[in-house]
Computed example of a mutant assay.
Amino acid sequence: MIAVIRTGIARGGIELRQTFTNATDLWGYFFPTVLLLGTIFFMRDAHVPGTEFSLGASTLPSALGMGLAFGGLIMVSQHLIVDREDGTLLRAKATPNGMSGYLIGKTVLVGGMALIAFLLQLIPGLFLVEGLRLDLAGWLTLLWLVPLALVATMPIGAVIGSVIENPRNMGIVMLPLIGLIAISGIFYPITSMPGWLHPVAQVFPVYWLGLGMRSAFLPDALAAVELTHSWRHLEMFGVLGLWAVLGLLLAPTLLRRMARRESGSAVAARRERILTTVGR
């Protein structure tokens, strides 16, 4: 088992390094960063309702939490779908302990990509807006929140990737996720939204990750504009923990089922479908 873990970590490390030499991956790192920082820049003179605090400074931590959720949910599912499409999963299945090494490698890859994107947005963002703080309590919050964010979202991303076979069907996931971001208080305080949306947003990780990041970076006085006027760390840990448990229960079963269905004929059929579509 130790050899499998080492192999998986090494594989993930190699794939992570390759993202710095791939134009598509570099675009995936820098385009969202530029888009977010541009949005923050134009929001810098707006204020959180009822305060003199910059709305841009409040939005940056929220967007960092959103980015972790997006990375865990979408990147994992996209990698699974693409690797199933091109036969990578089939090759892993045919190798002793190949699937275990593959999953460990993807965990390292996606976790590393999410953390790199996090830092790319955070570091310049700290110079772009005023009012953010990161004291000892904030560091301690990040130490448990960031790993929990990945554990709560990556298995769910694996579940999504195991049930969606065609990359074109990712819109089924993207559209609801965009709607969820809109109601989760990422770009504007959730207390300014209709009350009936509050319980809906609180079911999902996006709201809690945004709230957790705000609690790490914003002054405690800003908790006054949150639901219940507090950072709600206990509830945050509980909801994210429930999502982690749900994902870890569902993902292994669905991934094993997906792996059993993989065969040379299935890969060939997908390639034929792609060629037929391109030919049209």
Rank of each mutant, 00 (worst) to 15 (best):
191 T>E: 04
154 M>Y: 14
160 I>F: 11
154 M>L: 14
218 L>R: 11
135 D>W: 05
160 I>H: 09
86 D>W: 15
139 W>K: 03
178 I>P: 01
83 D>Y: 10
152 A>Q: 11
87 G>K: 06
145 L>N: 00
169 N>D: 14
156 I>H: 00
139 W>H: 03
200 V>F: 03
133 R>I: 13
157 G>M: 07
99 M>G: 07
116 I>H: 10
111 G>C: 05
119 L>T: 09
132 L>F: 07
102 Y>S: 09
132 L>N: 04
184 S>V: 00
210 G>L: 04
174 M>P: 02
132 L>D: 05
158 A>P: 08
83 D>C: 05
216 A>G: 06
171 G>R: 07
214 R>D: 03
84 R>S: 15
125 G>H: 08
157 G>Y: 10
121 Q>R: 11
192 S>E: 15
205 P>C: 04
154 M>R: 01
157 G>Q: 04
196 W>G: 02
221 A>Y: 10
144 W>R: 07
128 L>A: 07
221 A>M: 12
144 W>L: 01
96 P>L: 06
147 P>D: 03
208 W>T: 11
149 A>R: 11
84 R>D: 12
132 L>G: 06
103 L>F: 13
107 T>Q: 08
186 I>C: 02
191 T>W: 03
198 H>I: 14
161 G>S: 00
118 F>N: 07
126 L>D: 01
142 L>I: 05
219 P>E: 12
205 P>L: 09
128 L>H: 04
166 N>I: 11
171 G>N: 11
206 V>Y: 10
194 P>M: 10
98 G>A: 08
96 P>S: 09
88 T>S: 13
191 T>A: 02
109 L>G: 13
172 I>H: 02
135 D>A: 10
196 W>D: 08
114 A>N: 03
154 M>A: 00
163 V>G: 02
154 M>T: 11
105 G>E: 02
203 V>F: 15
119 L>H: 03
149 A>V: 05
220 D>N: 14
222 L>A: 00
109 L>A: 12
182 A>I: 01
169 N>M: 15
165 E>W: 14
134 L>R: 06
109 L>M: 03
90 L>Y: 00
141 T>V: 12
92 A>F: 00
